[in-house]
Amino acid sequence: MIALASYKKNISRFQSVIALFILCIVLGVLSDKFFTAANGLNVLRQVAVNVCIATGMTLIVLTGGIDLSVGSVLALCGAITAGLLKNGLSFPSADLFVGFTILGAVLAAVIIGALLGSFSGIVVTSFRVPPFVATLAMLTIARGLTMLYTGGHPISNLGEDFAYIGTGSLLGVPVPVWIAAVVVLIAVFITRKTKLGRYIYAIGGNETAARLSGIRINKVKLTVYAIGAALAALGGVIVTSRLDSAQPNAGISYELDAIAAVVIGGTSLNGGKGSVWGTVIGAVIIGVLNNGLVLLNVSPFWQQVVKGAVILLAVIVDKAGDKKE
């Protein structure tokens, strides 16, 4: 009985991996271009940004929250990176000009991202605004700030060195994939091996019990919103670098792709249950699906329908598994 139960448990844990596997086989049969190294790297490069964002989203969703502002934060922080690289910071009144190295600009963007996330976190914890509303407000605010900062125009021609982040390769693997891999490994480490990770799951699993156990709920929530937005900022750097241009309209609806990856990966929107690995698989499933449908010449309109259907399917299968337990 116990062996059977744990066998079933493992099946449900690897549900999304199995789904991905089947999806790849089907696409491989239907298209001879699918199983090529170039296509594989192409898929990974395309999902790298979503993996970064969705990883942060996973931490937030695990606490029972959500962040709708990641797309706008991505645009704002991408624009800030580009602006600092191109124009630096000048303070005419003090007759001061500060130029930025690539590393400096990237760090500044990520820190600003973390601050934006902290702001959402404070609104959620101290003012008890539901995360959905708090981050919806941040979505609009950050988009507006992006427009103000850029004047509505792209900031382009950022130099070849900077373009390496989004377009370069290291050991044959695209740099964005390396970045996403590092992000994922750190997040897996945090969720599995640290106090913070335990607290994240505990708060999502039962906030009352967590509070009674002496866990400082507000601190943990603030931290995950900061991390989530910082990773969105990192995504902004990659997108900006890849296009060699910061677009004021970048990142629109990226939050939905991130949430989709989290959900397909088996993380419960109620919090407390799920994993970063699951989200990575979820993001790759979305990427493979997009890629495969393009290879098969399916119209982009149908692609959206299929993506929606997959999200539904994933959640329904997940719920069915819950009931059986």
């Binding site: 335990r198 799951y201 039962n206 866990i215 407390g272």
Partner: peptide
């Protein structure tokens, strides 16, 4: 404090016995 309602206030039901025991002294 061992609270009145162990399911609502005491335990993270989905988590392992081990991580429930260690919760307050991580």
């Amino acid at each position: 404090l061992v609270p009145e309602d162990r399911k609502l206030q005491g335990l993270i039901l989905n988590q392992t016995i081990r991580s429930n025991i260690s919760m307050a002294i991580l």
